[in-house]
Design a binder for these strands. Structure first.
Lengths: 343, 343
DNA sequence: TCGTCCTGTGAGAGCGCTCTCTTGACAGGC
DNA sequence: GCCTGTCAAGAGAGCGCTCTCACAGGACGA
């Protein structure tokens, strides 16, 4: 019986002995080096199988100076805001893509300022081959700092500094598609419940709404616009205020599904029928949208794809450090359900 | 200027040279070995700071045979079922506890059977110092397999095999506390919407309900019991069925908040006032509960604490491999809001 | 026929660290 | 005075792997 890794690990040496070749040859086979003769290769492969050989990652890292792992940093506020299924879906996309190359995903969830410093130190030490950052608050210096140290970084959402690769969802176009759809189905008094304006997603979705209605220059407190905080209750209260201020509204574009569900409640309570009296379109296409009643039309974000694309960009950057930073904007798609049926 | 790790890393050797001591002494200082003289210690500490020395984890792992990382395995179905904030909160608890000891969290999210085999191989190879598993489907052989190989394992939720450490939430007692509260506030026709009975959480919550109503021996299709699938829509439909079958019901215990929100909708649509006509208590105390209207009483699960406790158990086990497996059952608490006000 | 190139393989150094073993210095007991 | 014990500190081996370099042997052009 072969002994397992940990105390009596199977080493290259043992595989080499069994296959009657040198350590170097075993290493070549294990790493897919093409310059190995057919017979040697087969002998090695047989020995690897027989001994259940698994390379020791630490030893490999020590000499290659790669860790074969990448860090994903998700700061505290993010998990709450995107409480929804953002977090797992994003990680799934990342995990997926890394698995293909047999890379590890090291998850870092700094809590509070002090912990962020700890994480920053850890990352700066170069313990991982690259770093994926999502939704940093405001003007976090971390990405620029890491990039400056030569550590590959890709940011999700809008980039905090120039010269850094990032992937974002086209929030503006997504909002625009929703509003355009409402307009094209005969709605004429289209209001919106926007997200916090200090968040790129909040600001961009409102911009898309404005742009499409052809009123770029209108002030924020426009009468047709209510800003809320991406919560269910916030959505409900915003809807109540809108109903009061714009009694003849016939459509709402809501910057998140959670808020949209709140809006649906407020509308129902006010005796407005959806979609007959008021059409509603949300954003995110979360599971909530499909199970809301009436079911909620929504702008779908490719979250997993965002994770995948960020990972691809990062690996690319790790392998070719001299390539210029790139950014990728992902398309959204409009998922139509009951809440936005034409009148 | 010191050069950063990666190409021109600062090594122990350089620190030793600067502090005018041997490599061994630097190592002792860095690892907190008490047998170092005061003057040597200070010289080393100064050199470490000056050079911004950070130990190379790979080199350390190679000789200590520890990876200083632990794996968290979250299989595909889990992320969907616990879509809610289970996932991030759990990871936060784990991350928290690991950070204290400067350990890494390696996240594994196998997707599908083939990928699970890959993950199992990875874990079996002993690349991490321990493994945390949550909610495996049915009779997964993985925990027993890993334990058999001498790899520390802690499972979240009910253990699939004897002899394995696990942490669970006291679902039964949680359900019981909710039902007891309803009974004590004068409710006499208390029905329940249960979760899937092939999931421990689903079964245990129903058992707690039964137990408390003193009807242990009643069959599942009891008339007062509806089983649903933990989804919003499932909760709504279950409530509709219950209203039809038990028109005089005056309280519902619902095995998840998401289903409870569905139930609230169904009740509202049927013209029943909550809590005047019908009291409702959910389970999970998710953010939904606080923002539902009326706000939803719910059984709070200590999710972060579960992550923390699992991690503690694991580290303990990793350090003292010969200790017998332990299990910890965490208490729930009842959070009372509007939906269960006394009549 | 000889040198040159190419291909497959082996020898061996060395990545940065920990840890055992040894040494040196000094105090105390006989 | 010597021996033993204690404590700080250094020397050096070696963890398992990759990778450079050297070399053997065959193919090929001159």
């Amino acid at each position: 019986m072969s002994r397992r890794n940990g105390d009596g690990a199977v080493t290259l040496e043992q595989v080499a002995a069994r296959a009657q070749v040198s350590r170097a040859t075993v290493s070549r086979v294990v790493n897919g080096d093409p310059r190995v003769g057919e017979s040697a290769r087969q002998a090695v492969e047989a020995a690897v199988r027989a001994l259940r050989y698994v390379p020791n990652r630490a030893a490999r890292s020590l000499v290659t100076r790669r860790s074969d792992s990448i860090a994903v940093v998700i700061p505290e506020p993010t998990t709450q805001l995107f409480g929804d299924p953002f977090f797992p879906r994003f990680l799934r996309g990342v995990s997926d893509t890394l698995a293909r190359d047999d890379l590890q995903l090291v998850l870092l969830m700094p809590q509070g300022r002090a912990d962020e410093a700890r994480v920053a130190r850890y990352l700066a030490a170069g313990h991982t081959d690259g770093v994926l950052l999502v939704s940093l608050h405001g003007s976090d210096p971390l990405p620029a700092d890491l990039a400056g140290r030569g550590i590959p970084v890709v940011v999700g959402g809008r980039p905090p500094a120039p010269g850094i690769s990032y992937v974002d969802v086209d929030n503006r176009a997504g909002a625009s598609s929703a509003v355009a759809h409402l307009a094209s189905t005969g709605r004429t008094r289209i209001v919106t419940i926007a997200g916090p304006q200090d968040m790129p997603a909040g600001a961009d979705r409102l911009a898309g709404y404005r742009e499409t209605l052809g009123r770029r220059d209108a002030p924020v407190d426009d009468g047709l616009v209510e800003v809320a905080d991406f919560s269910l209750d916030g959505g409900r209260r915003a809807m109540e205020r809108l109903l009061e201020r714009v009694p003849d509204l016939d459509a709402v574009f809501v910057a998140s599904d959670l808020m949209a569900v709140g809006a649906l409640e407020a509308l129902s309570r006010a005796g407005r029928r959806v979609p007959e009296d008021v059409a509603v379109i949300g954003f995110d296409d979360s599971p909530l949208a499909a199970s809301a009643r009436p079911s909620l039309s929504s702008v779908r974000q490719p979250i997993e794809e965002m994770g995948r694309e960020m990972t691809r960009l990062l690996l690319d950057r790790a392998r070719h450090p001299d390539v210029a930073p790139r950014h990728v904007i992902l398309d959204t798609s409009l998922v139509l359900r009951e809440s936005s049926q034409p009148m």
